[in-house]
Design a protein around this nucleic acid. Structure first.
Lengths: 234, 234
DNA sequence: TAGATTGTTAATCGATTAACAATC
DNA sequence: TAGATTGTTAATCGATTAACAATC
């Protein structure tokens, strides 16, 4: 127990040193995955982990883990490893999880409802403030505890509530119009499930596209590839 | 028109040359995106495109496009560009889109229904043969034209119908059991929406994980980063 | 033939891995 | 102190870009 406290002390002394801004994009892309594994370890009650143990769990090299974590300010401890809680907090901060952004979901179809019901948002510090749809039958109701508004009110709502994130689950045909409305209302990031590339005039609006189809294709590719290897065995 | 025919002739003569198997993984990862853009161009009625035009549309370098497409057998034509139809067909083949795999969706919740209703599968040559759920109220019904079976029948069904792809949209608690059932029944690839890493004994079962949370985190990161840049302006 | 655009080589860049001295 | 494990340098590897000769 003493050694853990000692580690903690060390971390706190070092916290100011954290360098940022020059983290390579390859590392940034890996951060959500680190975050996932570390959160799981934390929930499992683990306090510390070495790069070598984590490398086995995550199936990457220990060297890469040390190199990666060092990008934002070496706070491992020689002979001990990394403090999981501190590491998770640091990565959360870097990823913006601690910012507490507000989000709206536009489109209350199957996908919109699925997103309304997951605990994915809360875990990442994002609050779902409202759902929007054009179906008068559901406007005014609540879905998984989230109030449904008419899409006509979207612009005013986003502006007034200073919404940071807009989740787009409307049909392709409506996607551009809805996206533009949100962009105009000052929404900073659009999480786009509409299966199309959005071209918005506002260069400051960030668009993160979900292309499930790309993932399905990758799976097909891997299946086909594995089958070919199998064939070559004979 | 004559030149187009000429190009076509050239392509057919060359079709045999296609090299495969040594395509770098960085290129493989980009193929679904190429496929998307090329399909759109094809639907827009375009017949040919140059690496330089495509580079502008896709926001990558023309050099990369030529390098990429060359990996699986240079079939552009100097002075003309690439035949979109042929290129799309080639990429489709490489990705396994032409294999015509059969899939089942396990879990008929919001996400399962969303997946049952999209045209994403058909476009990629994947047939959705059946839905599975444990809710007796919906077993026996049809959802978006797909028959719903009880999950108890999953093993037999997959085995009998030689299902290649299992789409996993059940709660975390049931994910492992369902995945193992499918793996045991010879399902070759699992498309995993359960937000957890599946550890299956069978090393031949391919798992493609969807981690929407990672994408949401990336969006948060980009928003935070853009905000910081904004701050530094002053 | 002249113009356009590929295929391909060579140069650059960035990312990964290996190794080990520093240090807890 | 001895053992463990990081932080960091240097070596390797792979991916991207630039350039241009080949060729349609």
């Amino acid at each position: 127990m003493e050694s853990i406290d000692k580690i903690h002390g060390t971390f706190e002394r070092r916290a100011a040193e954290v360098k940022e801004g020059n983290v390579p994009s390859a590392v940034i892309k890996r951060l959500p995955r680190y975050h996932r594994y570390l959160t799981d370890l934390l929930e499992a009650g683990r306090l510390r982990i070495s790069s070598s143990e984590l490398s086995k769990i995550m199936n990457v090299t220990a060297s890469q883990i040390r190199q990666d974590l060092n990008c934002f300010g070496g706070f491992g401890q020689q002979g001990y490893g990394y403090n999981i809680k501190y590491l998770t907090a640091k990565i959360s901060e870097l990823l913006g999880v601690t910012e507490g952004y507000d989000a709206v979901i536009v489109g209350a179809g199957n996908l919109g409802r699925a997103l309304a019901s997951t605990r994915m948002f809360g875990r990442r510090g994002v609050r779902r403030i409202a759902l929007f749809d054009i179906d008068e039958k559901i406007v005014g109701t609540e879905i998984y505890g989230i109030k449904v508004y008419h899409t006509d009110e979207l612009y005013e709502f986003c502006k007034k509530e200073k919404i940071a994130i807009g989740v787009l689950t409307v049909p392709k045909s409506a996607a551009y119009h809805v996206a533009k409305t949100m962009s105009d209302a000052g929404v900073r990031g659009i999480w786009n499930f509409a299966n199309m590339e959005l071209k918005l005039d506002n260069p400051d609006t960030i668009v993160e596209n979900i292309h499930l189809g790309d993932s399905l294709m990758t799976l097909c590719y891997k299946i086909k590839e594995a089958g070919e290897k199998e064939d070559n065995k004979d």
